[in-house]
């Protein structure tokens, strides 16, 4: 448990560094995403070992849904969106989300099958 907490602390430090970089460079990417790219870089170069962060990271990721709850509860201040004319904006969001999910999913699926076929051919050809 202690190790997990320390590792989460380490991830928090990377998040702070990411936010600082974001503020200094004025990039439109959130600090957390910069922190993620930073940790990815540190793992790739071997400066940070996988086991130094694994327990903390897995702890946070397995309860990611919990961390989103306070943000989603914020919808309560906009109840008027779900009644009267506001509902149409929700309809728009739902339709548009479905379209994105469908197209991106389809392109992803198509790309993966194509790539796998190509690799199979290469194996046969070799």
């Amino acid at each position: 448990m202690g190790i997990t907490v320390i590792q989460i602390g380490g991830l928090y430090v990377l998040y702070i560094i990411g936010s600082l970089i974001q503020r200094l460079l004025h990039v439109p990417i959130p600090g957390s995403v910069i922190g993620m790219l930073l940790l990815f870089f540190l793992l790739m170069t071997g400066i940070v070992k996988e086991k130094w962060v694994a327990r903390g990271a897995n702890m946070l990721l397995s309860h990611l849904t919990l961390l989103f709850i306070p943000a989603t509860v914020g919808v309560m201040d906009y109840v008027e969106l779900f009644s009267g004319k506001g509902i149409w904006s929700v309809v728009v969001v739902v339709i548009s989300t479905t379209i994105v999910m469908f197209f991106v999913g389809l392109i992803g699926q198509w790309a993966q099958t194509r790539e796998q076929k190509r690799q199979m051919r290469e194996v046969k050809g070799a």
Partner: peptide
């Protein structure tokens, strides 16, 4: 909980 969202996004590097 919101405070932990930042480090959780960082953790996605794993």
């Amino acid at each position: 909980l919101v405070h932990l969202l930042g480090p959780a996004v960082v953790a996605l590097a794993l």
